[in-house]
Structures are given as C-alpha cells and as structure tokens.
C-alpha cells in the first residue's frame, strides 16, 4: 500500500511540474488561454498532492476555488486583453534574466529547506498534527486562529466596498 501512494506522489508531482512548465513556457502555443488551461491542470494535480497528505478539505477548496472561481476571473481578464498583441510580444531580456535569477534563488532556498527538513533538525517539539477534515480545521480556525480570521473577514469587506467604489459607473 505505501508503494502505491509513493507512486501516486511521483505521478502528481511530475504532472504538476510538467503542467506548470507548459503554463509559463509552452513551446507549441503562446496563446494566454492555453496557458490558463494548463494552470487549471497544474492546480488539479496539486490538489492530488494535498489528498495524498490527507488534507482533503484543502484539496476540495483548491479545486472549487482556485481551479473554479479564480480561473474564471483569470479568463475574464485574459478575454479583455488584446491577445494578438500579447502573442506578438518579444521576450524582454532584462525581465528574463531577473526572472531566472529570482527562480534560481528561490529554488536554492527550497532545496536547502528540503534537505534540512529532517525530524531531528526541527528545533521545537512538533505541534498537534492537523488532520485534513473540516472539523479539526474548523476548530483551529475558529478557536486558536479566530483573531486573524476575523481580521481577514474585515479585509474582505474592505475589498468588496473598494471594488464597488472603484468600478461602479458614475455614481452620485
């Protein structure tokens, strides 16, 4: 049984990397809609990784919110852009170098973090392991992390009011 989940991990991880690469640097198409579709596939493969980690709720949210709602907004924005103009645009060399530098820096940190992540290397005793069901998640969210949760609810209210104010037609 553990072999099977290990195999699944490599399948999902490989798919995530492959789709992620195709999303940003597709050799066949420079169409933003294709990129967005590959982003959806990346997100879905990532949800598979969450399931393997027993984070079932997070996996469901990943598909519902990110692959569903957020991507629809992305697509709306893409539709509003001038696609032909985007496809014709040349790669900016400075941006490319900066991007490569930033990504390699982050990759170096990640490699370091993964190699350092031995149980003995953890400086502190492990906290209670959160199971991925809704009930323990809800308990953590509404008990110990209640305050940030409430602040974020005010943040959402602010964002809503702001969007209406900034996008409504001429209001009087």
């Amino acid at each position: 049984m553990p072999e099977f989940t290990d195999l699944l991990f490599f399948v999902f991880a490989g798919l995530t990397l492959l789709f992620g690469f195709l999303c940003v640097a597709n050799p066949l198409s420079r169409n933003p809609v294709t990129s967005a579709m590959f982003l959806v596939l990346t997100i879905i493969s990532m949800a598979g990784l969450f399931v393997l980690l027993h984070a079932f709720f997070l996996a469901a949210v990943q598909i519902l919110v990110y692959a569903g709602a957020v991507m629809v907004v992305f697509l709306f924005v893409i539709m509003l852009l001038d696609l032909k103009e985007e496809a014709r645009r040349k790669l900016n060399r400075v941006a490319l170098t900066a991007g490569v530098l930033a990504v390699s820096g982050l990759a170096a940190i990640l490699v370091r973090a993964v190699t350092a992540a031995r149980p003995a290397a953890l400086a502190l005793k492990a906290g209670p392991l959160a199971e991925g069901d809704t009930a323990p998640l809800g308990r953590i969210l509404f008990q110990s992390y209640l305050l940030p949760f409430e602040i974020l609810s005010i943040l959402l209210l602010v964002a809503m009011v702001g969007v209406i104010l900034l996008s409504k037609k001429d209001l009087r």
Partner: peptide, 23 residues
C-alpha cells in the same frame, strides 16, 4: 507572524482603495 500578516494585509488593501479614491 500570522496576526502580523493579517494586520498588514488589512492596511495594504485598504490603502490601495484609499490611494485610488479620486478615480
């Protein structure tokens, strides 16, 4: 750090709206 991040986000997002208020 969680509370710090939530508080800073509340400040940042609110200021985005306030800064672009005279649209």
């Amino acid at each position: 750090f969680v509370l710090m991040f939530a508080a800073l986000e509340l400040i940042t997002i609110t200021f985005v709206v306030l800064n672009s208020y005279q649209r």
